[in-house]
């Protein structure tokens, strides 16, 4: 199965989805390698859910190819679905059933035998620290608990690929932390994970590779260092000095060829340059002027800066909570 290895366990080519005149997903292509955690990072309405829904077979692509473990999802949907665990953006288990029954029912949908699914359900409840809640109906769960049980339900049949649509959106900090830990644990067991999020920190902390998605297109993708690299940023040093150093900014800029000196609102001085900046000459310059330097450090761009630069979208757009009651899924 060499071809499959090269293609990746999930392979998406020129995927497109239109709703009437509106193009929600616009010619997206990407591969997910077996065992990696791949994430879509993008703001509301970027097309994350639309893409996931096409891959899992809940929605029909307008155009494009999708294969999962070499299986064409469009023609052999059910065969491909047997390999998938799916966590939708809404926690959608059965309100009137308790946690244990919900998990067992989901196991049964994948053809698991009674003893097998019950043992796994007990194990998952314990792993997700929901053991005490196992006998309570789903409708009595808190948001974080609902999220965790929904993830557990997707894992009951030990899928090879787990799809998580916004696993940590709108839940408490502690549950979100447990979910991140759980995802890391899955990777160790060899499960492939595809997740979407609009939290930069989550993408950075959880994912091996990230794709920035905006207005239905993948703007950039790669590992965090690769993404950082892709934006040609200069080097920057931030210096915390005596206050009277501010007036010397222009002079300092003249001293160092090709550099730009900015004074930050906190009165620190930032030297920006194409090349790396050696510290000693700067220190000597200040020393000669009789100015004390208390702190000097290199400023590195954050993933947030890279995202803003590549997508042209303000990072505040990502932080905006999901608008409820918008257009369907």
């Amino acid at each position: 199965m060499r071809g499959v290895d090269i293609m990746g366990i999930v392979s998406v080519a020129n995927l497109k989805k239109t709703y009437g005149d509106f193009t929600a997903v616009d010619d997206i292509s990407f591969d997910i390698q077996e065992g990696e955690i791949f994430g879509f990072l993008g703001p509301n309405g970027a097309g994350k859910t639309s893409t996931i829904n096409m891959i899992i077979g809940l929605s029909r692509p307008t155009a494009g190819e999708i294969t999962v473990d070499g299986i064409d999802v469009r023609t052999q949907t059910k065969k491909a679905q047997a390999l998938m665990g799916i966590v939708p953006d809404e926690s959608n288990l059965y309100n009137e059933m308790d946690g244990f029954d919900n998990l067992c029912f989901c196991g049964a949908l994948y053809g698991m035998r009674k003893e097998e699914r019950e043992a796994k359900a007990r194990h998952l409840l314990e792993q997700f620290r929901l053991k005490d809640a196992g006998k309570r109906p789903f409708k009595a769960y808190s948001k974080g608990m609902r999220r965790k049980l929904t993830i557990a339900a997707a894992l009951i049949h030990s899928p090879r690929i787990l799809f998580l649509d916004e696993p940590t959106t709108g839940i408490d900090v502690e549950s979100a932390r447990q979910i991140r830990e759980m995802i890391a644990g899955l990777k160790n067991q060899g499960t492939t994970v595809f997740l979407t999020t609009h939290y930069i920190e989550d993408a950075e902390r959880i994912c091996d590779r990230i794709a920035f998605i905006a207005k239905g297109r993948i703007v950039a993708s790669g590992t965090v260092p690769e993404l950082m690299e892709s934006v040609s940023h200069g080097h920057a040093i931030q210096l915390v000095t005596d206050e009277n150093a501010e007036s010397l900014a222009a002079e300092l800029q003249g001293r160092f060829e090709g550099s730009r000196v900015e004074v930050r609102p906190d009165h620190s001085v930032v030297i920006i340059s194409k090349q790396r900046i050696p510290l000693l000459p700067v220190m000597e310059y200040y020393n000669d002027k009789g100015i004390a330097v208390y702190e000097a450090r290199e400023l590195r761009p954050t993933l947030e800066d890279v995202f803003v630069k590549l997508t042209g979208i303000e990072s505040s757009m990502l932080k905006k909570e999901k608008e409820k009651g918008g257009a369907g899924r």
């Binding site: 899992i56 959608n92 309100n95 949908l109 994948y110 053809g111």
Partner: peptide, 14 residues
């Protein structure tokens, strides 16, 4: 309307 029906559509059964 509760979206739990999606589970049935996504299950690997005909």
């Amino acid at each position: 309307s509760g979206r739990s029906f999606d589970r049935l559509l996504l299950a690997p059964i005909s």
